[in-house]
């Protein structure tokens, strides 16, 4: 049973689907409960809204080569999705904020899929710097997020 902290009125009102959240206490466990609105909850079970959410979260950093393929991969691989904004931010910082980045899903044999981060360097990046950058990136990723690292790769689209 949830004992809400809202003050009650004499006539019960119809819930708003937009309003979250009563905050209350679950009497049986003593834990504090927070509730999201029904309308916000739809992101968890609507395919289209999940796709839209992923695009919105990432479009500051990345373009999608084949929108639906990459987005659906990220919906099923939440751990990858969670670290991508940080990766995008770091790449833009290291490679220049104007360097376009795109995501490309490569389906390999036996159902294995790899998400490529394509760096569109516009001929401004030399291979030595790129190789150093790439090695350092994967060293860090395998230390911090090994499960994510094995599903990622990076590629430079044009370098000097």
């Amino acid at each position: 049973m949830i004992e809400t902290l809202n003050t009650s009125t004499s006539k019960p009102e119809i819930d708003s689907v937009f309003l979250p959240a009563k905050i209350g206490i679950n009497n049986s466990t003593g834990y504090k409960i927070q509730e999201m609105s029904v309308f916000d909850a739809r992101f968890l079970f609507s395919v289209e809204l999940q796709r839209q959410k992923v695009k919105t979260e990432l479009q500051d950093w990345f373009e999608f080569e084949h929108s639906s393929l990459e987005v659906d991969f990220l919906i099923s691989n939440e751990d990858v999705r969670r670290v991508l904004p940080s990766i995008g931010r770091d790449f833009k910082k290291s490679l220049g904020s104007e360097t376009p980045l795109s995501l490309y899903l490569l389906s390999e044999d036996e159902g294995w899929e790899t998400l490529f981060i394509n760096i569109h360097a516009g001929g401004k990046l030399n291979w030595d710097y790129y190789n150093e950058f790439r090695n350092e990136f994967f060293d860090n990723m395998f230390d911090l997020f090994p499960k994510v690292a094995e599903r990622l790769n990076i590629d430079i689209v044009d370098a000097i």
Partner: peptide
């Protein structure tokens, strides 16, 4: 296929509860 609604996330008729 199966996915987690998220740790500590449970569905309820009036929304989503974040908690145990």
């Amino acid at each position: 296929s199966q996915s987690s609604g998220g740790f500590g996330v449970s569905f309820a008729a009036n929304g989503i509860q974040i908690g145990p």
